[in-house]
Amino acid sequence: MTIHVWDYLPEYEKERDDIHDAVDTVFRSGRLVLGESVRLFEAEYAAYHGIGHCTGVDNGTNAVKLGLQALGVGPGDEVITVSNTAAPTVLAIDGAGATAVFTDIRPDTYLMDTDQVAAAITPRTKALLPVHLYGQCVDMAPLRRLADEHGLAVLEDCAQAHGARRHGRLAGTFGDAAAFSFYPTKVLGAYGDGGAVITGSPAVDARLRRLRYYGMTDAYYVDETPGHNSRLDEVHAEILRRKLRRLDEYVAGRRAVARRYEEALSDLTGPGGLVLPAVAEGNDHVYYVYVVRHPRRDDIIEALRGHGISLNISYPWPVHTMTGFAHLEYAEGSLPVTEALAKEIFSLPMYPSLPRETQEKVISALREVLTGW
């Protein structure tokens, strides 16, 4: 049987009764759209972050898009972000009518190089969009200073950072708003698509609620455009309510898997060898994915396929190199760290219910490949 980087079935077997009860609770409620489960999840997710407001939406892409729109970003504006991210981050900027402007990333953590942001600001810049990638936080202090100095909005992309902290503070609580994805693979994942935006601003939250519901405050009357049909589903909300209570447990499980990798593979690091994840000072990493690096990445992936192990690359193509984003006019070589990284990174299996024996098979196969060269 092939070993994959993610598998929900072990977790489902453990939580099956609770998941079934969640579905039954919704089906028996008499309300299938924007009912009690969404309302309660929004309140509980906001409370988890110690923040005032949460609006549930249909997916993480629209969480970013609606978050930008609720912060006043629109056509003609620029949003500074990174190219080393999932394409939906930039698709959401496009969807809001704005233009993505990229900075390069740090070569150790693979996160936004905040030292480059000031030079990227122009009179058209409206927002900063840091991506808390792979499970740890961008250094938010310099971004907050720049935003305050230039009158910019800050929207955090927290799709990969549920429960991550920087100097004890949760991801999503540094900016004016923060977007989350609850895609099944996430640290906090639904059984389908889902997303949310949290904010401390009542005005931003009120606009988010209109935007997700056709631009309406009351049924049948559109207050503003563009409106969307972007509601979080009741079933997913109820499942997320149950799983939110176990979020810290999921994070602890991921950290345990990461520790086992580090203990077993650290002797394979060094010049020209395997590069394990670096955790920035002050960060509490939640290891959404366990991204390693090696100059012979493609050979390793092919060799491990022969052992029945299917690995993943997050991400093989930087956004600025994709033909779908040619309109952004970034030439090859314009983001050298991002481009070099994309040729060498790959992800090892990572999820909290990863069986120890499965992880040991991956470690053994990887060691066999690397020590055999």
Rank of each mutant, 00 (worst) to 15 (best):
A147W: 04
A119M: 05
G135T: 05
D108F: 06
R144T: 09
V131E: 02
R124H: 15
V117Y: 04
R106L: 08
T114M: 07
R124P: 08
D148V: 06
C137N: 14
M112Q: 10
A127R: 10
M140A: 13
D104E: 06
T114K: 15
G95I: 09
V131A: 01
D115R: 15
L128A: 03
I93Y: 00
D104Y: 08
P123M: 06
T103M: 10
F102Q: 06
T125E: 12
Y110N: 12
L129W: 04
L129F: 04
T122C: 02
I121E: 02
V138C: 08
E149C: 07
L146A: 09
M112H: 08
V138F: 06
G95W: 04
T122N: 03
D108A: 12
V117Q: 00
R145W: 03
G97W: 06
Q116G: 03
P107E: 09
Y134M: 11
T109F: 02
D115T: 15
A141H: 14
R144H: 06
D115V: 10
L133V: 11
A98N: 09
A120L: 07
A96Y: 00
V101Q: 05
A98R: 12
A96N: 10
D139N: 14
L146W: 09
D139S: 11
H132W: 00
H150P: 03
L143G: 05
K126H: 04
T99F: 14
T122F: 04
Q136V: 05
L143C: 01
H132N: 10
D108N: 12
H132G: 02
G97A: 01
T122M: 05
Y134F: 13
D108T: 11
D148Q: 13
R106I: 06
V101F: 02
G95D: 09
F102L: 00
P107R: 12
A127C: 09
T125R: 13
R144G: 03
D113A: 12
D94P: 12
L129H: 01
A100M: 05
T103K: 07
D139R: 14
Y134G: 04
H150G: 10
R145I: 05
T114I: 12
T109V: 01
L128H: 01
L129S: 03
I121G: 01
L133C: 12
Q116F: 00
L133K: 15
A100T: 04
P130W: 00
Q136R: 05
A96Q: 08
Q136C: 02
P123G: 06
I93R: 07
V131H: 09
R144V: 03
P130H: 08
D115L: 11
T103A: 15
A119K: 15
V138E: 01
D108R: 15
A147T: 02
D139M: 04
A120W: 01
T122L: 05
T125I: 11
A118T: 14
H132Q: 09
